[in-house]
């Protein structure tokens, strides 16, 4: 990034540590979105193996039956659940739901849009993603 612009760049955008759980949710949302996009592309490639016939299909499917394959799918489940639940929260926020009402601010100026409803939404998304991932891993490794 050129010094004359002095922009934080991707490093600053991706730094989730300074602005509370909302910025962490923003970071996880972007990360999971990119991860799911990568999975979508990989999934199209994977399913295209059916063109190689039954043997080719079975060969490729075996990749997901390994320990690494199970962990990979567990992460995909977590990304999918987090992105869905947090996405609903963000969409509701975009529609003006749960962000409070304009009012004269009083010191110390706690922003109404960063209220407990959205914090509960974020923590719920993280918790549900963790539970779904653990359940998925339990099912896959329990086979």
């Amino acid at each position: 990034m050129p010094q004359d612009e002095h922009r934080e760049g991707i490093k600053g955008m991706a730094n989730p540590s300074r602005y509370g759980i909302e910025r962490v949710a923003y970071w996880l949302m972007r990360l999971s979105g990119l991860g799911l996009l990568a999975y979508f592309v990989a999934h199209i490639y994977e399913t295209s193996n059916i063109l190689r016939g039954q043997v080719g299909w079975d060969e490729f499917l075996e990749l997901t039956q390994t320990t690494e394959g199970h962990i990979f799918l567990g992460i995909v489940i977590a990304m999918c659940v987090f992105h869905t639940v947090n996405g609903i929260r963000v969409m509701l926020g975009h529609g003006g739901v749960g962000i409070g009402k304009p009012a004269r601010p009083d010191y110390p100026y706690e922003p109404a849009s960063q209220n407990y409803r959205h914090k509960i939404g974020i923590y719920s998304a993280i918790l549900l993603a963790a539970i779904a991932m653990m359940y998925g891993l339990a099912v896959m490794f329990g086979e």
Binding site: Y19, E22, H94, I99, P105, Y109, S113
Partner: peptide, 26 residues
């Protein structure tokens, strides 16, 4: 705007730009 809310957290006057932006989007 992706509703990260960092703008509202640093505002020294309690303006809450994140709220304004979401209401504007409405």
């Amino acid at each position: 705007c992706h509703f990260a809310g960092s703008c509202s957290q640093v505002c020294p006057k309690g303006v809450d730009p994140a709220m304004g932006i979401q209401l504007l989007r409405g």
